[in-house]
């Protein structure tokens, strides 16, 4: 099998898994209704995996396709706006931190999770001008950090398990 075919196949699989993870997360009950937006960010497992395995370009492709399909399937224009800003910030920051080579996947995914929350908060600030959003960010920074730790550990595991796939 040539490399290109392999890569397409692997990206197809990872994108599908990201979609399934997004679906699982969408049907889970909200963790805390007072602060909407607290999530584990399961699809980020895949984004981190692809980022480490194939680099920024492919992570951006998988992330982009996931966002479009997820918002068509389970969301609306509003959720798309929230997730696009979150996902772009998240991926940019993760790839910068990865480039410095000074953080493990855990540190990278913590930054990704918190940046994702930050992006959503930025959208929310434009939609509603209120200081309460500041409190949201405080809560989300804490939960984002915790989520990032778990995603980092999970991604590490996935990276080791997919070590045989060389592209």
């Amino acid at each position: 099998m040539n490399e290109r075919t392999k890569r397409i196949a692997f990206l197809g699989i990872t994108t599908s898994v990201a979609l399934i993870l997004a679906y699982i997360e969408a049907i889970l009950p909200p963790i805390w209704t007072a602060v909407p937006g607290i999530k584990v960010g399961l699809p980020n497992l895949i984004i981190v995996l692809v980022l480490y395995r194939f680099g920024f370009k492919y992570a951006a492709i998988v992330s982009g396709i996931r966002l479009i399909i997820v918002s068509m399937l389970f969301g609306n224009v509003m959720t798309l706006a929230y997730s696009v800003v979150g996902a772009v910030l998240s991926l940019l920051l993760m790839s910068i931190l990865k480039k410095t080579d000074r953080f493990s996947t855990i540190g990278v995914s913590i930054a990704g999770a918190v940046a994702h929350n930050l992006g959503q908060i930025i959208v929310a600030i434009f939609l509603f001008e209120t200081v309460q959003i500041g409190y949201y960010m405080v809560v989300l920074a804490v939960t984002g950090t915790i989520a990032g730790v778990f995603i980092g550990i999970g991604s590490n595991f996935l990276l080791k398990r997919t070590d045989s796939i060389k592209i």
């Binding site: 000074r102 913590i110 960010m137 950090t145």
Partner: peptide, 21 residues
């Protein structure tokens, strides 16, 4: 070293969050 940087990163985020609160 990376592990230490991870912890520093998490600590900085949490300190900013607490300060913000």
């Amino acid at each position: 070293q990376r592990k230490r940087n991870d912890i520093i990163l998490a600590a900085v985020i949490l300190i900013i969050a607490v300060a913000g609160f």
